[in-house]
C-alpha cells in the first residue's frame, strides 16, 4: 500500500546530516522499513540510514557491540553471537517473525518501535544491554532506562546496542509462548543468572507481551540472590514472578492465562539456565 503522506526519501551521508534532516519537518528514520509501512505516521520525509556505517557485530565474551542497521538475519548468522551467552540471542531471534522479515528487520528499528510483544527487548533487558543513540551528540543508556524515559519516542537516531562482558558462571535463556511458530508472543520470558561457587550472585528476570512491553521482575530475581539455583529456589522465583508480573487481556489471551504462563515460563527459563550452568561446570 502506498504511503501517500510520504513525499521525500533521502539518504544522508553522515549522522549529523541525518539528524538535522530529522529535525526540520515531519520526518522519520527508515532502516529495514517494515514498521514504517505497517505503522505509518504523518511523516513526509523518510531518512534512510542504511547507507551509514551503522551495521556490524563486534566483540565476544568480553562484550558485544551491534550496529543499529544490522539485520536480524545477520545477527542470527553471526559467529560472535553464537558464542555469546550460550547463543541465547540466536535462540531468541530464531523465534522472531519469519525469515523473510528477519532479512529486512534491523535491530535498531525493532528497538525504536518497541512493540509490546518484542522478544528482543525481553532478552536484552536481562542481558543488561545499553542502547546508544544520537541527538546531536552520542549517548549510551541502559535499555530499561531507554524505555522508562520514553527515549524511543523522542527525535533521536538509535545507533547501536552493546552487550556487557560475560563473567564465568553466567547463563541466560529465553522462552516464547505463541499460537504458531510465526506469531507474536502470548508471553515471552527471559532470565540471566550469574553464579559463583554454586550460588547466584546476580540475576535478572523479564517477561514481555504481557500484553505490555517487557519489564524486569525485580522481586522474583531477588528470590535467587545468594542461593544455589536449586529446583526449590526456581519454583519460589517462578511463584514470585507470578505475583509480581503485571498481566492483562487482549485477543490472544486473558490475564489469568498469562499469569499461568509467567509461572511456567520463569520456571522453564531458570531450569534451562540450571542445565546450562551444570553443563558448562
Amino acid at each position: 500500500m502506498t504511503l501517500t503522506k510520504v513525499s521525500e526519501f533521502v539518504r544522508p551521508r553522515n549522522l549529523t546530516e541525518a539528524f538535522s534532516l530529522l529535525e526540520e519537518k515531519k520526518a522519520r528514520i527508515i532502516a529495514g522499513g517494515i514498521d514504517v509501512i505497517l505503522f505509518p505516521t504523518p511523516a513526509e520525509r523518510l531518512i534512510d540510514i542504511t547507507a551509514l556505517p551503522l551495521s556490524g557485530i563486534e566483540g565476544g565474551e568480553e562484550g558485544v557491540s551491534i550496529g543499529a542497521t544490522t539485520t536480524m538475519t545477520e545477527l542470527l548468522e553471526s559467529p560472535v553471537l553464537r558464542g555469546y551467552l550460550n547463543g541465547a540471542v540466536c535462540e531468541m531471534l530464531r523465534q522472531v517473525a519469519s525469515p523473510l522479515q528477519r532479512n529486512l528487520a534491523t535491530v535498531g528499528g525493532s528497538l525504536m518501535i518497541g512493540h509490546p510483544w518484542s522478544d528482543l527487548i525481553t532478552l536484552f533487558l536481562v542481558i543488561g544491554a545499553d542502547v546508544t543513540y544520537f541527538d546531536g551528540e552520542e549517548h549510551e543508556v541502559p535499555i530499561d532506562r531507554f524505555y522508562a524515559e520514553n527515549i524511543h519516542r523522542r527525535r533521536v537516531i538509535l545507533t547501536g546496542i552493546n552487550f556487557p562482558a560475560v563473567r564465568r558462571g553466567t547463563a541466560a535463556a529465553f522462552i516464547k509462548f505463541s499460537r504458531t511458530a510465526f506469531d507474536i508472543a502470548l508471553l515471552n520470558c527471559a532470565a540471566l543468572v550469574e553464579t559463583a561457587d554454586g550460588r547466584c550472585t546476580a540475576a535478572r528476570i523479564a517477561v514481555g507481551g504481557t500484553p505490555r512491553r517487557a519489564k524486569l521482575l525485580v522481586r522474583a530475581a531477588a528470590e535467587l540472590a545468594g542461593k544455589p539455583l536449586s529446583e526449590e529456589v526456581v519454583v519460589q522465583a517462578a511463584r514470585a514472578a507470578q505475583d509480581e508480573a503485571e498481566v492483562g487481556d487482549d485477543i490472544r489471551a486473558s490475564a489469568d492465562y498469562r499469569r499461568e504462563l509467567v509461572g511456567v515460563g520463569v520456571y522453564r527459563v531458570l531450569s534451562r539456565i540450571r542445565e546450562r550452568l551444570e553443563g558448562s561446570a
Binding site: M1, L3, F9, I30, G32, G33, I34, V36, I37, L38, L46, D48, T50, T73, S98, P99, L100, Q101, N103, L104
Partner: peptide, 21 residues
C-alpha cells in the same frame, strides 16, 4: 510471503520494502 523477492540475495516481503529503498 506471496510477494517474496530476493533483495541483494536475501528473500524479503516486497510489500514491506519501499521501492525507494
Amino acid at each position: 510471503g506471496a510477494c517474496a523477492v530476493l533483495l541483494d540475495g536475501r528473500a524479503v516481503n516486497s510489500c514491506l520494502v519501499l521501492a525507494a529503498k
